[in-house]
Design a binder for these strands. Structure first.
Lengths: 377, 377
DNA sequence: GAAAGTCTTGAATCTTGGG
DNA sequence: GCCCAAGATTCAAGACTTT
């Protein structure tokens, strides 16, 4: 699954690389990173020239395109780094790009043009935004992140259950309410001034990484700044590659990452999705004697019934099939999850088959641990 | 100020015109409307059918008007109608365009290309969005509106005080929390089925018109549908021009507008919304670092214990769940308020989690007030 | 008649692994 | 690559029905 693992090549893991974004990405192998988080510059207010948030001038006036307006220069800059990001991303990888109304629409359009497949646009609602000083517009209280897969067919990672758990057991929505980066979290220089103008809050990256990566995955940040992405990757036991051109930021980010203590291994385990737990064929439960052949099953409301056959199929009248097929057939549904549909009786209570699956998995876990102890002892 | 007044020409005021969007706009004089609200097709590109977990079928948008061959075709369509809209708009006028991630980035980029000047992007947060049934993405819980002036130099209208009053006397933010159009407000045909697949809520247009127009201003809607914009314009004593090509929708919109009673002249003022109370998921406290992953919790009498996971669940042995579920499970109670049940240690004292929730809310309140003071001072 | 329970529905790019 | 079967998956409102 992990891009780094599948490559078998040298990746500069857990490092902040100093250099230009596009040029440095060119040194990385194709399909080598599992996830990218990018916070590109969007200083578009200046007329005739394009500057990064650190006030450095983007070299946008080339012979070829000095006739372009600055919007077009920004588009070229965007297309260049996104093209390289697309190449470096694993075929099942995803990318997050954050921006404001100044640049996010251009980024979104170019993402689509390059074949990225949009999964969500996420709104970061700021709990403490800067008010609109002159009262001429609505308070600009949010920024937008676009979450894309490398292609429409990518089998991307989304830790659905972890996100649901994080939100009091209801689906996580596309609007996230999080505070700005302030207080002690904000890196400052010796004069007490903020080191970076757009340092992102750790809570934002915490959620991004927890949602879309697994422990050990490689996370790339091509505009690392003061290293929020690497720091959170390290905390959550992911690998990281940071790219940053400004030496002051590189130094600050390296410092910061070194100070970051990874969480204990058992503390980074978020709620796993059911899709990740090993499959248990229903027939194996019969073999193990967790449920006997001949036992009668029914749905929760006891409207339909069936009997367990020794090969793990269900029989009802002349009909026979898997727990899923039979559930679908008897309810005229297009499909059915037999594990939650069918129930059996235990101590006068109706329990879903899923209970047996859990018990089977727990049993397997137990014997595995016992085997390990025996081996050690 | 008003485009209509300054023209001294005949405008088809307070009418729903039947016709194609671009062609019909061509019949309107340049610079003749004060405000445009546009809800163009989203280019959803839906594939097969989608079913809810209970196997019921979702009634998706499959209308012909939302079918485009590719992104280029959609871009051309967009550029065409936006060009005409730009011509028709008064030099000091503003326009609102609503969309989702499928189309809004292309629209935003083209708006900038055509010289429109972005004032805000506004997020309509839906109080009751459709969930993501397959658990493969975040709930798509919002749509985006881009608010633009005709040009950078437009002296546009923004009713700042009205918006502030509407929001309990604090600046209106760029994220609006409003319900979908349902119930009696939703227009239905003789079979009780929704007349239009994407009817917008009146509350949304109410706020848009109140924010950006004066009494008597001319509001144009080039994709009128069932006439929400004309109806709200009439209610708020603005003039309107609607354009719609489907005769059924034209008939419904005309009917609707006729039934709409304009507010009394002295009543065309802000009506306050109900205030939302912020809910704090336990997971967000972990993200914000108010409590760390790996921290040990216990009940007041220290009979049961559990550890905090990075997604805000608690773990105890092989058991895992929300703070509420785990409290209930470990005490064999039917339910449990995790906020008051679980305690953590601070300075040798056992404090309930609720303390952290209070601190989180107070923190958000504080930073908000500081920001406002800065703005005023 | 009130309260509690059931049903319906909304701009949706909505699965995955093995043969 | 395709095909097929296993199997994972929903929240808030409002209308409607039953107790």
């Amino acid at each position: 699954m992990s891009g780094a693992q599948s490559m078998g090549m040298e990746l500069p893991l857990d490092q902040i690389l100093r250099g230009e974004c596009v040029e440095t990405m060119r040194g990385l192998p194709s399909g080598s990173v599992d996830c990218i988080f990018a916070d590109p510059p969007y200083n578009l207010q200046l007329r005739g020239e394009l500057r990064r948030p650190d006030d450095s001038l983007v070299d946008g006036v080339d012979d070829d395109w000095d006739k372009f307006t600055d919007l077009q220069a920004y588009d070229k800059f965007t297309r260049d780094w996104l093209t390289e990001a697309h190449r470096v991303l694993h075929k099942d990888g995803t990318m997050w790009v954050i921006g404001s109304y100044h640049n996010i629409f251009r980024i979104g359009a170019i993402l689509q043009d390059l074949g990225f497949w949009i999964l969500n646009d996420i709104v970061w609602r700021k709990s403490n935004p800067m008010p609109n000083f002159r009262g001429r517009r609505f308070t600009n209280a949010h920024e937008t992140m676009i979450w894309v897969a490398k292609s429409e067919t990518s089998r991307y990672r989304f830790n659905y259950q972890a996100m649901k758990a994080l939100n009091d057991d209801v689906q996580m929505r596309s609007d996230w309410y999080l505070p700005l980066c302030t207080g002690n979290e904000r890196l400052r220089n010796e004069h007490g001034l903020k080191l970076h103008p757009t340092q992102k809050p750790e809570s934002l990256l915490h959620r991004v990484i927890l949602a879309s990566t697994a422990v050990g995955d490689v996370v790339l940040d091509p505009f690392t700044g003061t290293g929020t992405t690497p720091a959170m990757a390290r905390r959550l036991r992911r690998r990281f590659i940071g790219i940053e051109r400004h030496p002051d930021y590189v130094a600050a980010a390296r410092d910061r990452v070194e100070r970051e203590v990874p969480l204990a291994e058992d503390a980074v385990q978020a709620t796993p999705d059911k899709r990740e737990t090993p499959r248990v064929p229903f027939g194996s439960l019969v073999e193990q004697g967790l449920i006997g052949a001949g036992v009668a099953l029914c749905d929760k409301k006891q409207r339909v019934q069936a009997t367990v056959a020794p090969d793990g199929t269900l029989v009802s009248g002349t009909k026979r099939g898997s727990i899923h097929k039979m559930g679908a057939m008897l309810t005229n549904a297009p499909s059915c999850n037999g594990w939650t549909f069918w129930h059996f009786e235990r101590n006068g209570e109706l329990l879903p088959l899923d209970v047996l699956r859990q018990e089977s998995l727990a049993l397997a876990q137990q014997t595995m641990e016992m085997a390990l102890q025996t081996a050690v002892g």
